[in-house]
């Protein structure tokens, strides 16, 4: 043991010292098998205490306020109106119909937003690889501009600055089959399911088979522009993940830019893009709750009014959180299915 690698002074801390440790049992807090249980028991105990403390307070305070959990108020008449609704709703209908109408409005905004943001994001993401330098730089400006400004600010900007400053009546912006005025967006459509009718000015008020409120338009444009920028980055990342050799191979086969991106690059980029899209879609669904800032009666807006009228804070928030959770899970499930599809195709 005379080696210079093991100086004797380092022998402290007793591997060899003391009585034969091989025969002694370790104390329970130094037993490798027990430690996981000890830690978990401790953490579990603390968590349990915390939950018990909070729930205890909740029950006590709610009882004192006479607001103990009950769902009966859902059946009482709401008493408020909803300006526009996919599902029919009037003030004398019960609260649950109101919340349902709000959910309908949320679903409309989310589904339209998903489609719009996907189109905008895909185009913008692909434009990053355009041969036109100006277009590439313009897309960078778009993404950097949108990502560094709060969505809520963008929404109120679209609503108060852009849509509310539109003219009404004859001065409104008019296109073939489309009229955009302060009172809304008017689209051509089938009247009575028979004849094709465009927007018409009747007594200085526009009328058309299909009218979208400016609130909805502002929300939709805001969500599409915002999520579009994030989706553009997801698409860009996905395309960038395809090795450069694939582009070269495609162009050496004589494929043009559009053909190579469509037939060679996108199919390989999709497995990378889809998970990123999932995240963006979910955040779009959650972001739609900012509709309340532009006066669009989505689920959150209706829930807020309901709470203010009934004082049923706990029930309303359980409903709200539960609904958004289900919405997220729904989107995730759809995107997972798409992911599977994309992967199988890749193989």
């Amino acid at each position: 043991m005379g080696s210079n690698l093991t100086p004797p002074q380092l022998r402290r801390g007793g591997l060899n010292g003391g009585d034969n440790p091989g025969l002694s049992q370790p104390p329970w807090w130094r037993n490798r098998l027990l430690i996981p249980w000890l830690v978990q028991a401790l953490v579990g105990f603390v968590l349990l205490l915390l939950v018990a403390f909070l729930l205890g307070n909740l029950v006590r305070n709610l009882t004192a306020a006479g607001l103990l959990l009950s769902w009966r108020w859902l059946g009482q008449p709401a008493g408020f109106d909803i300006a526009e609704s996919v599902l029919p709703f009037q003030a004398e209908m019960p609260y649950w119909r109101g919340l349902l109408a709000g959910l309908g409005n949320t679903l409309r905004a989310v589904s339209c937003g998903l489609i719009g943001a996907t189109v905008v994001g895909t185009l913008a993401g692909m434009a990053n690889f355009s041969s036109n330098g100006l277009l590439r730089r313009l897309v960078r400006v778009y993404v950097e501009l949108v990502r560094n400004i709060p969505l809520l600010l963008q929404l109120v900007f679209w609503y108060f600055v852009v849509f509310l400053s539109l003219p009404n009546g004859l001065a409104a912006l008019q296109g073939p089959g489309v009229v955009l005025a302060k009172s809304g967006l008017y689209l051509a459509g089938f009247h009575n399911g028979l004849h094709w009718v465009g927007p018409q000015l009747v007594n200085d008020v526009w009328q058309a088979p299909l009218r979208l409120s400016v609130e909805f338009c502002a929300l939709l444009v805001g969500l599409v522009v915002y999520s579009g920028a994030y989706i553009a980055e997801v698409v860009r990342g996905g395309i960038a993940s395809v090795p450069a050799g694939q582009w070269e191979a495609a162009s050496s086969l004589g494929l043009g830019w559009l053909a190579s991106i469509r037939h060679v690059v996108i199919p390989q980029a999709l497995p990378v893009i889809v998970p990123g899209l999932n995240t963006q879609y979910i955040s779009l669904a959650k972001n739609s709750s900012l509709a309340v800032a532009v006066g669009y009666a989505d689920l959150y807006a209706v829930a807020e009014t309901t709470l203010n009228q009934t004082g049923r804070a706990v029930e309303v928030i359980i409903l709200l959180l539960g609904t958004y959770l289900v919405l997220d899970l729904l989107i995730s499930a759809l995107m997972n299915a798409l992911n599977q599809f994309v992967r199988i195709k890749e193989r």
């Binding site: 959650k286 709750s289 959150y300 709200l320 959180l321 958004y324 959770l325």
Partner: peptide, 13 residues
Amino acid sequence: GAPLITLLFLGQN
């Protein structure tokens, strides 16, 4: 899974 606004709402109420 929850929108921030609902959590803020929860915090206040």
